[in-house]
Design a protein around this nucleic acid. Structure first.
Lengths: 248, 248
DNA sequence: CGTAATCTTGATGTTTTTCAACGGAAGTGG
DNA sequence: CCACTTCCGTTGAAAAACATCAAGATTACG
């Protein structure tokens, strides 16, 4: 594993920030201690590739902190992001030996890893893990399908508004913010990454963000720092039926 | 359940055509007989709606024969198909009480249904079901992500070629056809349904099909009967890296 | 301070949608 | 059996949306 910043941090699972949302969420104390024996941490710097599509991948992992992306690439270089991995999200697939997508650390990233074989063995003996993984996979499938609607049918403006709404909502959840008042957050993605997520070019992303700024729907401080004075206004631009949200 | 053609056909699970691919694939004889006690069949005519998005859905089911679609609709009527359900595919989500999508029978359809509560109970006591459902859900997630690449980055021509390739491949698998020779099949979807699947308008679908026909990449007999003289040629138009396929 | 990376904006070009008209096949009722 | 309607599909012309090409501006960073 060349050029990788490997840490051997050792956390207690009990203190783990993703304890209640990750694949281990349903585990009892004894199950958790078995997991604890086979887990190890790995860190990646922003921009580093975790695995390349097609490469052998002998572990599965949970994102502990930071953000990673899943992207697919066509031969001629066209790229489509197919997943945004946030803390507690799961990477890798039990029962498959090679990665199906490029996995890249967008920010500094810490993952809690399990070698595949021991993890698969544990899944067989510990139904709680498989149950939670099923639940998480069903949620991801719903999110992917919501994204299909965005990619197939929304306008560039709606796509940008939708992405901003999702990031804002996630950020508010993470910070346990109050329901009302302006939302403030930093974009974790470059314009190009946003374009790859939304099926647009980076120029179109830039133009649509500028348009939303001109119209006062968002405020920009620098290129990444965003304020949303009225969230409902943004949701209208996103074309969603009011409530909806990829993140429950 | 108004206007629904309900059959009380009674199949033995042992003879079931989807026995080895559906959610019950891993079940042992005793597990199967327990499933057999809680299952019932339902039939729908082509065009009928199985459930509307948001409606209460008190069962889950496997497609036994025929084709169904999952679609999302925006308030202004824009539609995106987010799934194509073929025999052995699973409908519904354990642990959720309302449908997330419109489910529609595209052809005459037979489903093997389980009331949700007994099915959920069985999942807890029968790991084989949850294991298989996880496997199937992971496959669906992969398919959804492949579709995201298509929706976000492929041209109209590539989208059409990709869809034809997928249908052709599925059809060949189903008929256990030999590897070589021209592929012949009937399109199970109208132009409009194809458009909803591909994130295009029906006019664009029609034009691109006409273009592929003019160029000899496909042959059309009537509007639905398709012959593909050279599958590799079609794959080139689809922009896929040769092998790929949503259906293993 | 200089260089690279990121972002913005303008001008132009291409693709796809929209609007519109029409053709054929299938079903319906007289 | 025939007129009539509906559904499905095709094609053309014009318009809109988005991409591409190109030039600078701003920011980050060594």
């Amino acid at each position: 594993m060349p050029m990788q910043d490997m840490h051997l941090v050792h956390h207690e699972c009990g203190d783990c920030p993703i304890r209640h949302r990750a694949v281990c969420a349903r585990c009892e104390a004894d199950e958790l201690s078995r997991l604890e024996q086979i887990k190890y941490y790995r860190s990646y710097q922003a921009g580093q590739t975790v695995v390349w599509s097609g490469d052998r991948m002998d572990f599965v992992a949970s994102v502990v902190s930071g953000i990673a992306t899943l992207t697919q690439t066509m031969e001629d270089g066209r790229r489509q992001m197919v997943g945004l991995l946030l803390p507690s999200d799961f990477v890798g697939r039990p029962g498959r030996s090679t990665a199906a997508y490029d996995v890249t650390a967008t920010t500094d990233l810490v993952m809690c890893c399990f070698r595949k074989k021991p993890f698969e063995d544990m899944m067989l003996s510990t139904p709680h893990i498989g149950q939670r993984l099923l639940e998480m996979t069903l949620d991801e499938l719903d999110a992917a399908r919501e994204w299909m609607l965005l990619l197939g049918r929304k306008t560039a403006r709606e796509k940008i508004a939708s992405l901003l709404a999702i990031i804002a909502r996630r950020d508010a959840t993470l910070k346990l913010k109050t329901a009302k008042g302006p939302l403030v957050f930093d974009l974790p993605l470059t314009r190009e990454e946003m374009a790859d997520y939304l099926g647009l070019t980076l120029e179109t992303v830039s133009r649509q963000i500028s348009a939303l700024r001109r119209e006062g729907i968002i405020l920009l401080d620098g290129k990444r720092h965003v304020t949303i004075p009225d969230f409902d206004l943004l949701l209208e631009e996103a074309g969603d039926d009011s409530d909806g949200g990829v993140l429950g």
